[in-house]
Design a binder for these strands. Structure first.
Lengths: 241, 241
DNA sequence: TAGATTGTTAATCGATTAACAATC
DNA sequence: TAGATTGTTAATCGATTAACAATC
């Protein structure tokens, strides 16, 4: 791997901070594109949607990349965060399951610009092996091992139906993949040392529904109204105004 | 809204617990479908991918729905959690932005079974207004207000490009939507009282990349290897085995 | 009654935040 | 020097976990 420039600074970054670094990176990229050379923690925090105390605390885990009284050099800080995350280099990824969602993921242009390169699309369904999606051939799932070996893939994306996901994960782990992004609505079981992150549409919506329900409860509650009922809606409107 | 059966039990559920309730709900639905009548916290926790102490603590915020020495009635607990989340009723949602991702979301079958009903697909691009996606007409974005009023929509999904997302959010908020699920890679600014949840592919992958990079650092580090390099891959494989 | 399992307590851990000394 | 802003401290808050009394 690339030589480390600041070997000790990167130890033990809290997980909550790690999850925000990509947000800061994106905000900084926006500032670079807007031609901004320098920014304060206040400005950057605003762009990232956090408060400035949290931002400064987060950045302090990486090192001291700002200048007191001045702020941060946008481009320099962007580079340092990208390096810390590890996206100065390109990570090869495979996507398994080329249904509607797999199509959308394969066509997602943000991959390339943000440190990732889709090296293969795999699907178990032979009828999809003729397709070319986003300029990439869809290949049989059986090719997984060969592709992972050939490209040194460490990150896999699962976009299959729920029933297939555990099998796909097992095969991925079996051939050396140690990070999985799972879009299938299942709990995956993987050995220690393998990271799984989950993106789940229903869960996100249900979390919103929970809070929405409670907002509605805070209002006057005519027994006959509810979400989906136009009368209910007017109440929501008042609360928001 | 529907009358509350246990008015005091649902106050102040911690956010971390709220985020896990949908996971428990899904696990319970799986158990119901498998014909399981009763389960212990240990079993349910296993199915949900958490430890049993956390599960019991979480459930304790809802009330006492288990029986000591016996466990939980699967169907009864499933109902109580669904009611608590608010998905015993159907929430009408609109999806704005019918590109690749919007297509995938519109076709996502889990909506219906999990408490949501897509009542409209909207897109600003007139060339898409002929399309029918998942049996639903794609309509002009200008119809948003009328649709929200007609169906009492409280939850909106944004699947547009990043540049359009803030405008879409403003319009949604303006016509009474108070919960937004945002797939566009932008920080949305919304007034207090409006909930936004964000799903961001690049961020998830970058979080994985960070950990992946650190796994690689723990190994022997021949200066010339890195991810994407087959030699590197063999090292990853050893760590996982 | 004996065994099993919940619901709760209390200790621990991690994350957030405001305040401010350091310093440009 | 005076004003601005970082990096850090310390207090607070929230989440996790193990242990166990309650009780079926």
């Amino acid at each position: 791997m690339t030589a480390r420039t600041s070997p000790e600074a990167s130890r033990d970054i809290p997980e909550a901070t790690v999850a925000r670094l990509p947000v800061y990176l994106r905000a900084l990229t926006g500032l670079v594109e807007a031609g901004t050379r320098t920014c304060s923690s206040e400005e950057l925090a605003g762009a990232a949607g956090v408060n400035s105390a949290k931002l400064r605390k987060d950045l302090s885990y990486l090192g001291s990349y700002g200048t007191r009284g001045v702020g941060y050099d946008v481009d320099y800080l962007r580079y340092q965060i990208a390096r810390e995350i590890g996206v100065e280099q390109d990570w090869p990824v495979v996507i398994v399951g080329i249904g509607n969602l797999g199509h959308a993921l394969a066509n997602f242009s943000g991959f390339r610009s943000r440190g990732f390169r889709v090296v293969a699309l795999l699907d178990a369904d032979p009828s999809r092996h003729d397709e070319v999606v986003a300029g990439i051939d869809v290949r049989p799932f059986a090719d997984l091992e060969a592709i992972v070996r050939e490209h040194g893939v460490a990150i896999g994306v699962i976009a299959t139906p729920a029933v297939a996901a555990q099998d796909v994960a097992d095969r991925m782990v079996g051939c050396g993949i140690t990070s999985i992004l799972n879009f299938a609505p299942t709990v995956l079981s993987v050995p220690t040392g393998v990271d799984v992150r989950k993106v789940d549409l229903s869960i996100e919506l249900q979390i919103l529904a929970y809070h929405e329900q409670r907002k509605a409860q805070g209002e006057a509650t005519p027994a006959t109204t509810g979400p989906g009922d136009p009368a209910h809606h007017e109440l929501v409107r008042e609360e928001t105004a």
